[in-house]
Design a protein around this nucleic acid. Sequence first.
DNA 1: AATTTATTGTGAAACAAGTCACAAAACATG
DNA 2: CATGTTTTGTGACTTGTTTCACAATAAATT
Lengths: 210, 210
Amino acid sequence: MKQVTKHVIRNDLKRLFTYRLCLIGFKRKGFDRIYSYNLGEEAGVTAEQVRKDFSVFKIKGNKKSGYKINDLLHAINEIFKYQHNQHVIVVGMGNIGKALVQYKRFILRKMVIVASFDIDPSKQSKRFGIPVMPMEMMGEIIKKFHVKVAILAVPDISAQDTANILVDQGITGILNFAPVILKVPDDIIVSNINLCDELESVIYYTQKVM
Amino acid sequence: MKQVTKHVIRNDLKRLFTYRLCLIGFKRKGFDRIYSYNLGEEAGVTAEQVRKDFSVFKIKGNKKSGYKINDLLHAINEIFKYQHNQHVIVVGMGNIGKALVQYKRFILRKMVIVASFDIDPSKQSKRFGIPVMPMEMMGEIIKKFHVKVAILAVPDISAQDTANILVDQGITGILNFAPVILKVPDDIIVSNINLCDELESVIYYTQKVM
DNA sequence: AATTTATTGTGAAACAAGTCACAAAACATG
DNA sequence: CATGTTTTGTGACTTGTTTCACAATAAATT
Ligand SMILES: NC(=O)c1ccc[n+]([C@@H]2O[C@H](COP(=O)([O-])OP(=O)(O)OC[C@H]3O[C@@H](n4cnc5c(N)ncnc54)[C@H](O)[C@@H]3O)[C@@H](O)[C@H]2O)c1
Ligand SMILES: NC(=O)c1ccc[n+]([C@@H]2O[C@H](COP(=O)([O-])OP(=O)(O)OC[C@H]3O[C@@H](n4cnc5c(N)ncnc54)[C@H](O)[C@@H]3O)[C@@H](O)[C@H]2O)c1
């Protein structure tokens, strides 16, 4: 048992997501082809970085006339293709859990929240488009939908216990909103979202002259 | 006008936040002093990394008997001290905005959401502990509370326009939840939270063998 | 068809981050 | 109080990432 803190989202992957976002924007504006410096400008990185990233992922452009936006989008989607229509569960249907299950964009990105869980029976009666179930049903749902990834949105104090349950039930990836460093086996992926840290660093940088 | 995408939260700062979190945990468990390898183990980094980080921030320990937890916490807090009781606003009181204004931990970390804003008059009547105001009142509130940082939680389509308003009104730091690369002047800090990207990378890594 | 121009693709160079290795200091022990 | 043990603090080294520089080449122009 050892926690995984090593930043789970590699920088080049993160940039790939950013490129996709920008490309969709360019496409919407009517563009068809794009140069590395356009995309770099938009994504906030250098043109060389863009080309190098594409090079790493074996994405090819056309000398002199740049990249076809559709090809790029297709190539980027191909990198993530196998994971389309992944089923995800949410544990803890409080403020943040409720917001997440109602977030439409997950569906656009082919990530489907199939069920949510809460220990509080009063939450179980309410519905937000998807069922809110008692914890005991988790095993069944995980099996039925082949769920591998869970969003953890329970109070900090319960986060470790709940993570243990998730791992026992066969979950291998956790998007964790609790400000807690989870102890999980080496082969479990944990990505921590710590909004306090994020807000505090924005404040930090607004105060510092850089 | 150029957007800031360079990851706003430096890795060593991020680790400092993690150390703080772990130290609070150790303290709660009754520990008084700690060695770099204990803290590293807990935070998921090497002991050398811990010492190097402290060294960079001029935090000193005691050879042979390690670091006093209270001293460490004090030193880390000192680094962020000047920003205590920073006032923050939230723009867009939908699902995610509502969750955030009710998040207790911001207060624990001395970050105070003083007001929120929404164009929808029906949202303006509701209260979640703090007032939900029409956009026109933003200038007044920013001045009154010397607000520098805003949390942006409006729909993607309105994000750029709203960011422009924020910058015009004197905001210099934005925590942006919309999946949009904001174009802002160079001296404005933007930190993007993209939950789709985060979830998609967790899925990516659970599928890849590493 | 030759020449010019613009852009990709990628090794090499520069830079940044992380790890190693060990001297220096603090404490414990006999 | 000398000796042994442990842990810090940091300079040197290693590894990883980004930028630079330019050859290769596709398209445009003459
Ligand atoms: N609200 C926010 O904006 C926000 C922001 C960032 C992080 N977080 C973190 O996300 C987590 C949830 O925050 P929240 O504001 O939604 O809290 P909340 O109190 O509103 O919701 C927590 C939910 O978890 C359920 N729960 C409690 N123990 C459980 C258990 N053992 N198993 C299953 N369900 C359980 C509760 O019934 C409740 O519905 C916390 O760790 C918090 O620190 C919240
Ligand atoms: N819901 C989530 O879990 C979630 C997760 C990640 C990111 N996001 C992002 O956060 C943003 C908000 O998401 P949401 O789910 O809360 O949406 P929502 O539709 O529930 O809320 C948006 C709110 O913004 C208000 N608004 C619209 N235009 C505005 C404007 N020009 N100025 C001020 N207020 C305006 C609306 O009245 C509404 O109250 C979106 O960009 C979304 O992509 C949401």
